[in-house]
Design a protein around this nucleic acid. Structure first.
Lengths: 186, 186
DNA sequence: TCCGATTTCGTCAGTCACTGACATATAGAC
DNA sequence: GTCTATATGTCAGTGACTGACGAAATCGGA
């Protein structure tokens, strides 16, 4: 009965966005979202493991791109440089997904349950970066430290880029790194 | 009908710990936890807003201590120094709560739902630190950056202290800060 | 063109987290 | 010995999520 092929997922995401914008996240049920998409609640949970996930979308190329960039970085680079270089390489992905991300950002920020999920997602990316460093021989705790610091710069750049999209994400990331350097060498 | 006074909460926490250690988090229901504590499920949810919360415990002095330390830091200090100083001041609280934290740490690490909550809690602390910096006139994005970097050092120190409790947490935090300084001044 | 396999969805029944409303019993103030 | 605030029990209900099963549509090939 493959009626819709793949756009069922997109319809569900769109329906979720609209309903949550209208009534708030807690006040919209998964059944309502499915109904607006012309589907059943059961089908909703076939496309999303979670009610929250309908408001998110991780580019499937993100994680592979990060791990690959981590693995292919030049030898002898300090850990934080490796992380920054990897994060720089996925800038275009961020820019590509802005149309999806932008309208959902304020909703996520305003909904504790969604913010929690967002925090977990960045934490998962930090783990990915740390794992990449460990695979290059960096000690575990140090790897986690560098990964967290790198992601902090990334978040800084992301926030700046959301405020001012006229500049490339890359430019913002460079500025974030500069702010970082001005920070610790006390 | 105040039969148990305040230790009902502790009994629930203890029951939750035991049952989760025995059968895993997902396989233990809130009703079972309440039953082992000699209480009802309804009472469980009067003591914890969430099933997950039975495995956590935030010292009520933590957040006030942090905000106070942030506010009372000397003028003219760079943001990261302020954060580090505040985090240093709550080291004793960490050490005091080790008996509660230690046995729950592996469970949280092994359970995605609990890890998500833990991530959210650290994110909330980061927000608290950032707010403290903003109140001192630090620009928003820069405040967030310094708060995240500071919390990264704190996490580093916490992990090191859990591995080696013979040293003070303060010592580990100093070493974390040193590792941080060796990191960025490239 | 017909057929079998795969995919995508609907239906149904069920579990579990969590909540509101109301009753009840206990500890402590007086 | 009342009176009151507090801690708990009971009950009914909502909503997220899952497993099992069936049905229809698509696709590959004979």
């Amino acid at each position: 009965m493959p009626r819709n092929g793949d756009d069922a997922r997109r319809r569900l995401q769109q329906a979720a966005l609209e309903l949550v914008q209208e009534h708030g996240y807690d006040a919209t049920t998964s059944a309502e979202i499915a109904a607006r998409a012309g589907l059943t609640e059961r089908t909703f949970f076939r496309h999303f493991s979670d009610k929250r996930e309908a408001l998110f979308e991780e580019d499937p190329r993100l994680r592979p791109a990060l791990t690959e960039a981590m693995a292919e970085a030049a030898q002898g680079l300090p850990p934080l440089e490796i992380v920054l270089q990897a994060l720089r390489s996925v800038g275009p992905l961020l820019e590509e997904n802005r149309a999806f991300t932008a309208p959902r950002q304020p909703i996520i920020a305003a909904t504790p349950a969604l913010r929690e999920r967002a925090d977990a997602k960045t934490a998962a990316l930090i783990s990915l970066l740390a794992a990449g460093l460990r695979q290059r021989g960096v000690e575990a705790k140090l790897a986690a430290l560098a990964a967290q610091v790198g992601m902090a710069a990334f978040s800084y750049a992301a926030r700046a880029w959301f405020e001012d999209p006229t500049e490339t994400f890359d430019v913002h990331l460079t500025q974030a790194f500069q702010a970082l350097n001005r920070m610790s060498p006390g």
